[in-house]
Design a protein around this nucleic acid. Structure first.
Lengths: 113, 113
DNA sequence: ATTTCTAGTTACTAAAAGGTTACTACTATT
DNA sequence: AATAGTAGTAACCTTTTAGTAACTAGAAAT
């Protein structure tokens, strides 16, 4: 997701510029307070391809919202977790989840099939 | 934004399926409690083209989140406003805006330039 | 000797999203 | 007689996003 020109400094526009992609909020929410490996994230989000997951993780890392820890083991082990900055998004994710649990949201999701 | 396969019924994934596009949250937030004309929306969001705005409004209308009222006048006048269903998203937009107003968000927005 | 396990990367292709320009209809104003 | 004003639409083109399949390393287990 490209940067959105924001001359009026709209805070919603700003948020969408930063985490407005399709997957970023889902990844942030999956991580929550946990530390998860690449493969585990892939399992939790079966609809994302490993290429896209890899890209999204890199972007989130560049934004300093997540931290990547590589262990010198074989087979490789890499863990991802939210930084303090990333954790500041959790209350927002909680609201997103709250709306997603509403009857209306469930109904609209069905309509999209 | 296409429907995201959601076998574990993740509520965040569901929300992203429905309003996860780049522009939908911004439009919903712009509308707020007001009724706005097409041209006014275009002014408030200078970075969106009229083609894309037109498409997004149609999608939001199909989701029953906004209502379109056409006045029989010349030059044409059309107003858009949130339905009751659409208004249920306002608390969430409030949280989005809250995070967008944070120091961190402003810093990250600058970094994207 | 082969398979498994992990976390990716690379190359290629397909699909979706987005942008640009020009155009319409009708009235009122200059 | 020409221009402005509104809410789009149509055709065309470019950019971005996404998906697939094949491949890597090195140790451990079969």
């Amino acid at each position: 997701m490209r940067f959105i020109d924001n001359p009026y400094q709209c805070p919603v526009t700003r948020t969408m510029s930063i985490i407005g992609g399709k997957w970023k909020p889902i990844i942030i929410n999956c991580l929550g307070d946990k530390s998860l490996r690449f493969g585990k994230l892939n399992q939790l989000m079966p609809a994302i391809s490993n290429k896209v997951l890899s890209n999204e993780l890199k972007e989130l890392e560049a934004l300093t919202l997540i931290e990547r820890t590589e262990f010198q083991e074989l087979p490789p082990r890499v863990e991802y977790k939210l930084t303090t900055a990333g954790q500041s998004l959790l209350p927002l994710m909680h609201e997103v989840a709250k709306w997603g649990n509403s009857h209306l949201a469930k109904q609209l999701e069905n309509q999209l099939h």
